[in-house]
């Protein structure tokens, strides 16, 4: 999947160990042809991918998930109603070479995703 078609990062800041990405979703992304025809809703997995791509900006390496302990989808994301989102990420490097991750996707109104997982270098 071409993630640059799905979103772009408007701003990246860091505050007290939390990495904050302001992103905008692109309604022209190909996924919306099938999710769902005539009713574009951002797939939950694409927002998991959004978190992963932002986490790569934090660590500066190519990452993949080894596990997702919990991922709650708490609100419907659509490129028309909720195009501007904030991704907040906290990472913690473990001794085993993996990175534990806690991430939230939200806007000023509500939160849409809350994820706890483990990552490793993909290369």
């Amino acid at each position: 999947m071409n993630w640059e078609e799905y979103f772009h990062i408007d701003r990246y800041t860091e505050e007290d160990g939390t990495h904050i990405f302001d992103v905008t979703l692109d309604p022209a992304c190909d996924v919306y042809r099938g999710h769902f025809p005539g009713k574009p809703i951002s797939p939950g997995v694409c927002n998991i991918g959004l978190i992963l791509r932002c986490a790569e900006k934090v660590t500066g390496s190519h990452l993949r998930f080894t596990s997702i302990k919990q991922c709650r989808l708490t609100g419907l994301v659509t490129p028309s109603d909720t195009p501007h989102l904030t991704v907040e990420i906290q990472t913690n490097r473990t001794d085993g070479g993996t990175t534990s991750l806690r991430a939230v996707i939200r806007d000023s109104e509500k939160s849409y995703m809350d994820l706890k997982g483990e990552l490793e270098d993909a290369d």
């Binding site: 769902f36 939950g44 993949r64 998930f65 080894t66 596990s67 997702i68 302990k69 919990q70 991922c71 709650r72 989808l73 419907l76 997982g117």
Partner: peptide, 13 residues
């Protein structure tokens, strides 16, 4: 119906 995923738990790859 549109079935939405509400939560994913204990997912291991």
């Amino acid at each position: 119906s549109l079935g939405y995923i509400g939560e994913i738990k204990k997912c291991i790859f």
